[in-house]
Design a binder for these strands. Sequence first.
RNA 1: GGAGAGGUGGCAGAGCGGUCGAAUGCGGCGGUCUCGAAAACCGUUUCGGGCUUCACGGUCCGACGGGGGUUCAAAUCCCCCCCUCUCCGCCA
Length: 434
Amino acid sequence: MPGLVTFRGEGGPLLDLRLIRRDPDAVREALSRRGEADALDGVLALDAECRALRSAVEERRAESTRIAKEIGALKKHGEAVPAGQEDAARALREQTAAEEETLRDAEARRDALMLALPNIAEAAAPDGGEEDAVELRRVGDIPVFPGGVKDHVELAEAIGGLDLERAARTSGSRFAYLMGPLVRLQMALVSWAVDVVTAEGFTPVIPPVLVREEALVGTGFFPADRSAVYATADDDLFLVGTSEVPLAALHQDEILDEASLPLRYAGISSCFRREAGAAGRDTRGIFRVHQFDKVEMFSFTTPEESAAEHLRILGIEESILQQLGIPYRVVDVAVGDLGASAARKFDCEAWMPGQERYREVTSCSNCTDYQARRLRARTKRGKETVPVHTLNGTAVAVGRTLIAILENHQQPDGAVVVPACLRAYGAPEVLGPS
RNA sequence: GGAGAGGUGGCAGAGCGGUCGAAUGCGGCGGUCUCGAAAACCGUUUCGGGCUUCACGGUCCGACGGGGGUUCAAAUCCCCCCCUCUCCGCCA
């Protein structure tokens, strides 16, 4: 496909530069909620510099073209070129080259700053940091275990489904061998989830999990979260932490027909995370591991539809947890805890009896036009070309969902009753200790 | 991995140093004709950015896979990279 493009020379708008110019105070205030207000003034100063330089450079280029055309016309008609005209043109060009260098440099610095700015949060998103997420609701009854609670490691090992020690020997900490009955359970879970989201209009996709840097920049993981991503040693490829990355990049550099929106995809993939900076946290079991599998929903919508799509995705996530019989709560994540690309994020946290608290199992974000700008995924609005909106949400994060199933549905004898919806997909009714 | 051929507008496909953002065909859009439609005919149809405008618009710059170079002048010449295709090798 010859239309496949690598990188655009002159680059598209990132955070809407025009919006920044028109109303810098509003943007500054929005960014200050995320502690990034200062970065804006650097951008504004550089932008003014870039525009002044660009005007000057373009005038010179116009002059150069004019002279070149004159010379061309003369030569074409066999007439003599006035003495010194070519020398003058050369001198002008050399002058311009120096200015172009300055312009390129200024624009590169401006773009580097722009690339580091996070998205502007929705006004309704709560202020604050990690502790300031607002609980929206709790659904499902928390199970009680008079005879005592086992956590997922005990339960999984007892049924021959997990080997952590050998995984550590093979690959280090935060890896697992998932085995036997848990493999069957995972496969059922994935197949079922794919059916559920397919019924909701999401096209299943198995995407590449190794991607170029551009896809990670485009989705906002770079430069902000670079340390979380595995890089390959001999190739310029990176292992994705979520299929959101290749799904977003699916329509990179495209102008989508508005009538085709929303476009909905469900990525099925392994996910890889370095978990740098998480040392010592959640070290037990498979709650926080370097590799896990996930079914991920991803939507491209018009700007008007994204907020509704966000709630729709959240609804699907909740429906999945309800069908699995997992008690959960929904939280509205505070601005300071959003990823760079998100304008609003809802997490579903499942009750984990082994930890006696709610922990994140799914998450859905509205990235508005942030990723679309970076990836140049657009649609036509009359004569205008506008960025689309992108959203992503977890259908099933397999590892954490397995934990929630095991721990919530455990029996006094250590057996686990499998949710009914999975039985048609090849899961046994009960996982019994061997 | 080795050898070769290529990458041009939504698609097909010319152009191979000057007035080319780019012939032609198809498709799309608008119109004429028609009760309506088809056909025919006429017109129109890329993207990004700067300046200017309340706006409609105007004007200039850039882009022929990406980046760099040669030249007064590059889609056209040179170098590097990316991608596609064919053959060979290897492989699930």
